[in-house]
C-alpha cells in the first residue's frame, strides 16, 4: 500500500504556514473557554464534599468515587462490597452505543459506497437527501418515532392490516426502542465520513487487485477496507460517543425506566438526590472512557502513517 506512487500531486500546504495561528485562534479560544474550563470545574467538583440538596462544600473528598465503586448497603454502614449498580448502568450504555454503532456501520457503509460511486449531479442529490433529517430537531424526530411505534400507532396498524401479526408488537418503552432511536439518530454520522473516505478511494486499486486474481471478498477485505479505514473509524466514533451520553432516546422511547449514563448524571444535578460531586465523578469516569477509545483511534491512525 504505502509503496504505491501517488497518482496526483497536491502541491504543498506549506504555502500557508504563516497564517497558522490566526486561523486556529478563534477555535482555540472557544474550546478553551467553553470546554476546558467547565471540564476542569467538573474535575474539581468531583473531589469535593456534597452539600445536601445540591451544591458543594469546599472540602476535599473522594466520597463520590467511593460511592461509584463501593456499595455499603441501603443504610451506608455495611462492610463495603463492589458496587455493580453504576458499573451496570455504564455497561448498558456502552452495550447500547456499541450496538447502535454496529448497525449504523452495517447500513451506513453500503449507503456511503453507493453515494460515493454515483456520478455527476446524482451524488450531490443523494448527499443532500442524507442531510434532510437534520432540518428537523432531534427532539421532534424522537417524539415522532414514539408516535410511530406505539402499540396502537401506524406501524402496528400497518402490520396488522397486512396480517403479518395478530396483535400489536410491543416496541415502545423497551430497550429495542432505545436502540432504534439511537440507530436512527446517528446513522448519517456514519455515512458522511465513510463517504468522504470512499470518495478519495482510487478505483484503479480495485482493478489492480482484480488483475492479480483477487476475489471480490479479498479485494474488499485486503484493499478497500484498509484504505477507507480512517473514515470507518471516524464514523464509529461519531456514532459511539454521542450514543453513550444520549438521554433523549432512553427517556422518550425507553420510558426512562432504566438509567443510562446521561440520565444518571442528569439525575445527580436535577433530581431529588442533588449530589453534584457524584454527578461530576460519573462525568469524569465517562470522559476517561471516551478518552481511552480516542487514544486507541489516534494510535491506529499514527501506525497507518508509518
Amino acid at each position: 500500500m504505502a509503496n504505491l506512487p501517488k497518482t496526483t500531486s497536491k502541491g504543498s500546504a506549506k504555502t500557508y504556514d504563516g497564517l497558522g495561528i490566526p486561523l486556529i485562534l478563534p477555535a482555540w479560544i472557544i474550546i478553551g473557554f467553553f470546554l476546558v474550563i467547565p471540564v476542569a470545574m467538573m474535575l474539581v467538583y468531583s473531589f469535593l464534599t456534597k452539600e445536601f440538596r445540591g451544591g458543594v462544600i469546599w472540602e476535599f473528598s473522594i466520597g463520590a468515587y467511593d460511592q461509584f465503586f463501593f456499595y455499603r448497603g441501603l443504610f451506608g454502614d455495611s462492610p463495603p462490597t463492589i458496587e455493580w449498580t453504576y458499573i451496570g448502568i455504564f455497561w448498558r450504555s456502552i452495550w447500547q452505543a456499541g450496538l447502535a454503532t454496529f448497525f449504523c456501520l452495517l447500513i451506513g457503509f453500503p449507503t456511503a459506497w453507493f453515494i460515493a460511486t454515483r456520478t455527476g449531479p446524482n451524488k450531490t442529490i443523494w448527499l443532500f437527501l442524507i442531510t434532510i433529517p437534520y432540518w428537523v430537531n432531534l427532539l421532534i424526530r424522537t417524539i415522532s418515532m414514539k408516535f410511530l411505534i406505539r402499540d396502537n400507532g401506524p406501524l402496528n396498524e400497518f402490520f396488522l392490516s397486512l396480517g403479518l401479526i395478530s396483535e400489536p408488537l410491543h416496541i415502545i418503552n423497551t430497550n429495542f426502542a432505545v436502540q432504534l432511536g439511537l440507530f436512527y439518530s446517528y446513522l448519517p454520522f456514519m455515512v458522511l465520513p465513510i463517504y468522504a473516505a470512499v470518495e478519495r478511494y482510487n478505483f484503479a486499486l480495485s482493478e489492480a487487485a482484480a488483475d492479480l486474481y483477487a476475489s471480490q471478498t479479498v479485494t474488499l477485505t485486503q484493499v478497500i477496507l484498509p484504505t477507507v479505514k480512517p473514515g470507518i473509524i471516524a464514523g464509529c466514533i461519531l456514532v459511539f460517543v454521542p450514543s453513550l451520553g444520549a438521554f433523549l432516546a432512553p427517556d422518550l422511547l425507553g420510558g426512562a425506566k432504566n438509567f443510562m449514563i446521561g440520565s444518571l448524571i442528569e439525575e445527580q444535578f436535577k433530581g431529588a438526590a442533588g449530589n453534584w460531586p457524584f454527578g461530576a465523578a460519573a462525568s469524569m469516569i465517562l470522559l476517561s472512557l471516551v478518552l481511552i477509545v480516542l487514544t486507541f483511534y489516534a494510535r491506529s491512525q499514527t501506525k497507518d502513517q508509518i
Binding site: L74, T85, K257, N258, F259, A272, A273, N275
Partner: peptide
C-alpha cells in the same frame, strides 16, 4: 436516593 437509584438501575 439509594432506593430511587435501585429502582432505576
Amino acid at each position: 436516593d439509594t432506593i430511587w437509584t435501585n429502582l432505576k438501575k
